[in-house]
Design a protein around this nucleic acid. Structure first.
Lengths: 145, 145
DNA sequence: TATTGTTATACTCTATAACTATA
DNA sequence: TATAGTTATAGAGTATAACAATA
């Protein structure tokens, strides 16, 4: 992320600002996760799996908005790192759960992500801070349902 | 973008929400720009070039946070579409400006992007709406300088 | 017949490295 | 010596299509 020299029209547009700030902060998260050898989507899956055990690949994908074709390599990475194990539910579905090593990793992931959330909120002036999460939730249509 | 079945912890995290909402809305913008055969970064460059003429490639890149290695193919696309022309400033730098066709295209881009901005703001409840742009600007450190 | 899961593949975005040429 | 611009390339994210196996 570089600092813009001068202001221009684009810095008034919510869509452009949304894209740029997500880009900037996700870059930082990527850096912080790199010691753990985890991608952002891997980490988000780990957080979800840790919260609700024995979900299937398709359930995780629905919740994180990751296509099933992309869930396969994602879970493959976590499995090959020894962080998750898969147990057959029936001949078609598999329950995903954390291994012991996965639980340890999850603690580190939680430390990193909660630090990021704190840093993000701290960067927002107090007047606007409490409006940020509700606005984003609305943008994802989480509150209109 | 799919609707999550149930709520989970991640939907409370500003970083995760930031990533997901940017992803969702930029997907929509990509769709709306596709009839013009423009990528989002192409469109953002076009908007900037239209606002301030005769910038160099490196100046545009600095303002949009696009690396020079990625500016080359971007400007190449706009040039091959006949939207911009490059005029030598000295043996090293080139001034980028819109062609006549580029100006026409710019109008269409402006229509699409301003509609997107309206849609984004409309999706945010009124209570939170006016806090959104200031919060994002702060996240990009545009107001702290 | 619909769903689960996988593989292969392609496109976009972004980053680094190496290079040429000019200021 | 630093800067402008280009090329080649690689990693990551996401998408579609085609497929096998099972509910």
């Amino acid at each position: 992320m570089s600092q813009p020299n001068e202001e221009h029209l684009l810095y008034r547009l919510p869509g452009y600002l949304l894209r740029r700030s997500a880009q900037a902060w996700m870059g930082r998260l990527t850096e912080r996760l790199s010691p753990l050898d985890l991608r952002i989507s891997d980490a988000s899956a780990l957080l979800l799996i840790g919260e609700r055990t024995d979900m299937t690949s398709s359930e995780i994908g629905k919740n994180l908005d990751i296509k099933s074709a992309n869930m396969a390599p994602l879970l493959g990475r976590l499995e090959s790192q020894g962080l998750i194990a898969r147990a057959p539910i029936d001949g078609k579905s598999q329950a995903v759960r954390l291994t012991e090593s996965g639980h340890k990793y999850l603690k580190k992931v939680r430390t990193i992500t909660s630090q990021l959330e704190q840093d993000i909120l701290a960067a927002i002036p107090e007047t606007h801070r409490d409006h940020f999460v509700p606005a984003l939730r609305a943008l994802l249509e989480l509150d209109s349902a």
